[in-house]
Simulated scan of single mutants.
Amino acid sequence: MTANAVVSPIPRQDSHEPTSDPVAIMVRYVRESWAVVEPYADRVAEFFYATLFSIAPATRELFPVNMQVQRSRLLRALVHVVQMVDRPDDLIPFLRQLGRDHRKFGVVASHYEAVGMALLAGVKQFARGAWTDEVERAWAEAYTIMARAMLESANADEGPAWWNGKVVERQRLNRDLAVVRVQPDFAVPYHPGQYVSVETPHRPRMWRYLTPATAPRDDGLLEFHVRAVDGGWVSRSIVSASEPGDMWRIGPPMGRLRVDRKAGRDVLMIAGGTGVAPMRSLVEHLSRWGENPKVHLFYGGRVRADLYDLETLQDVASTNPWLTVVPVLETESRVPGMERGTLADVVTRYGAWPDHEVLVSGSPPMVRSTVSRMLVAGTALDRITYDPFTVD
């Protein structure tokens, strides 16, 4: 099992009143014990991997040779998922997607057992006095829920574990940003707004999540927008070294961002930087119909160059009256036609958007700050959708 970086869950107000609900009790034990352990997360991760590779040496082949970047990803992903066990409507569909995605690694049932043992061992090692029989039982039960959902989904899926695709073009927009177009052997069955994992020949076994920026096409061509982030081994190699003819592997589609045209609700889209990719895919898909919900798309960045896809979106808006595009800049104040401030600032100036479905995509800090500010402004949490996994 492996995973990319995780957007930390939005802070919640947990009740400490006594309860007999076994799920609530389990979640409370997990969260309270993790709060003790979290300051030592890096050391927990080292202990976790050492334990995993000791009890199940075959799992070492599932991970890249260089573990520097990978070190804390799986552990944080596991903890994030375990802490969501009281939100089954959000968690179970995500786990099913994750289980299908993990087939590309050749993961089997014994690997899940080994990961669970290593996870509990790592948390126990650093929880020390906070680790009790009740806490251990809570972590074991939460992990079992996660593993069962993933395994059942993986076993039921009859589709391919991955698709092969050939890079046909790399367009370098600037030093840190590139558009890469990939032609799969067979069309990947994704919905607009979903993301996929990719493995490139330059970074074997280092899978990275990317979102197609275009709606599904008849020829299956995929377009990815990739920014080279600090410390991003995969993203930097894609931007600087990808060439036509490179063969990629593409994992099963995942993600919850989508627009239901029949729901009767207007849509608010909030995108930062390359987080515009799923929004552009959704907008392109919607443009195939004449009538749609009204869509307000706030597209933000620090400087004008970050809004690299603005003209494309404005072209769509010019012929589709249901779409309004609002560009937002944090640091440049003299660019005409731009709102000034962070996305969180600008979006909440307009209010709580109570009658809208809200889709958010971007860096982890941007997602956290924007969603948190919207909750404070009065937006209902169940109206906000964002995906927990992001770049590098």
Rank of each mutant, 00 (worst) to 15 (best):
V325N: 04
L62N: 13
S54G: 12
Y190F: 14
F186S: 07
V182K: 03
E158K: 12
R334V: 12
F105D: 05
D315E: 15
P18W: 08
Y40K: 13
R349D: 03
P22K: 11
A228L: 09
A149R: 00
R208D: 01
T319R: 12
M146I: 15
V107I: 14
R43W: 10
V303H: 07
L323V: 08
V234Q: 06
R181F: 03
R205M: 15
L222G: 01
A380K: 10
A50R: 15
V82K: 02
V303Q: 05
H296K: 02
K104H: 12
R265A: 10
V391P: 02
M84T: 07
E291Q: 14
P39I: 14
D387F: 06
S287K: 01
L329E: 11
S33V: 13
T274E: 01
G165V: 05
F53Q: 06
T390S: 08
G106W: 11
A277W: 07
R334P: 00
V239Y: 05
Y308C: 06
E223G: 01
V358I: 15
I55A: 05
S242G: 03
D392S: 07
Y350G: 01
E357P: 02
T51H: 12
V316F: 07
V360W: 10
M150A: 08
S333M: 15
V295F: 06
E61M: 12
E243D: 05
